[in-house]
């Protein structure tokens, strides 16, 4: 048995390569965009006087504000839709599938997530388009007389596409939480005279909440910053904040403004996530 001091040193030495990498390529770059967001672009050079002017613009300019609020609204809808639709699936696999077939179901659910994201989003454009698969099929079957136009190049299309793309992310954490539930608790509730529905509401659901909370954050955080989906299926009214960040960096060549927008978006998302965790803290306590 080694001394604890030796163990600590060995552990730190072993973890140092990935740690140094994370510091150099994550912490330092994030620090750089924070610094850059406090500078201003002066044609081809940076004005390195520290100022909050970019942030003032990010929060007051109507265009940036609209994009930010829309991104949050779209992400919120996507999160709500994916969690609501995913819960029954996670519940089904955990409670109604034979143990030896559970891994197969989880494998089947995760496969589409591993196929090219770009092509899945593009496929939705093909499905939802004016001459798309859905419209041509419905027209061909005589269900509609003219193509539906409210399903592509707007925020609805972005919500549908993102809800599809993030579905597996919600199923897995909820499934893991459901798997952890001690089945004897459910039997106890039934033995004490509660019906199946009340048992679900008062025993299963509260115990599954850590999974639901994880699923919510796993979808909400990355979707706010999604770039591909708004460009392919969003149209002008479906653009989100990431599109503006990209435009600032690669087209307007205003990296400080782009950095300020990126930091603002990240801060707002982090604040909402922390508030959500705070509101849900009752469900997240360890239960005996």
């Amino acid at each position: 048995m080694r001394l604890p001091k030796g163990e600590a040193a060995s552990g730190l030495l072993l973890v140092s390569p990935p740690l140094v990498y994370a510091i150099l390529l994550l912490a330092v770059p994030l620090g750089s965009i924070v610094l850059l967001s406090l500078w201003t672009q002066n044609f081809l050079t940076f004005d390195t006087t520290l100022t909050l002017a970019n942030y003032a613009e990010a929060f007051t300019d109507p265009l940036y504000r609209t994009l930010m609020l829309r991104s949050l609204a779209i992400s919120g809808s996507v999160t709500l839709a994916t969690v609501l639709f995913a819960f029954p699936i996670a519940y089904f696999v955990s409670f109604h599938v034979a143990p030896e077939r559970k891994a197969l179901w989880i494998f089947l659910i995760t496969i589409p997530f591993w196929t090219s994201y770009l092509l899945r989003v593009f496929a939705w454009k093909v499905i939802l388009g004016f001459n798309g698969v859905l419209n041509t099929s419905l027209l061909g079957l005589g269900i509609i007389d003219e193509p539906l136009t409210f399903i592509l190049y707007n925020a609805n299309a972005v919500v549908i596409t993102l809800a599809h793309a993030y579905a597996p992310f919600t199923i897995l954490p909820i499934y893991v939480a459901l798997e952890k539930i001690d089945r004897s608790l459910l039997e106890a509730s039934r033995d004490l005279g509660e019906n199946a529905f009340v048992t679900f509401l008062r025993v299963t659901l509260p115990l599954a909440m850590p999974g639901v909370v994880a699923a919510t954050l796993i979808v909400f955080i990355p979707t706010v910053g999604d770039y591909v989906t708004p460009v392919l299926v969003g149209g002008p009214d479906g653009r989100m904040i990431a599109n503006m960040i990209q435009i600032q960096f690669l087209q307007l060549n205003d990296a400080p403004m782009g950095s300020a927008l990126a930091i603002s978006a990240m801060t707002i998302v982090a604040a909402i996530s922390l508030l959500f965790l705070f509101l849900m803290r009752g469900f997240l306590k360890e239960r005996a």
């Binding site: 994550l26 994030l30 965009i33 990355p222 910053g225 960040i245």
Partner: peptide
């Protein structure tokens, strides 16, 4: 330490992209 290594899992990829772009190029 392990948290920092795992952070990219929950960071929007566009943030990783622009942060690295700024560090490498600017």
């Amino acid at each position: 330490i392990l948290g920092l290594i795992m952070v990219p899992l929950v960071l929007p990829e566009i943030i990783v992209g622009v942060a690295l772009l700024v560090m490498v190029v600017s």
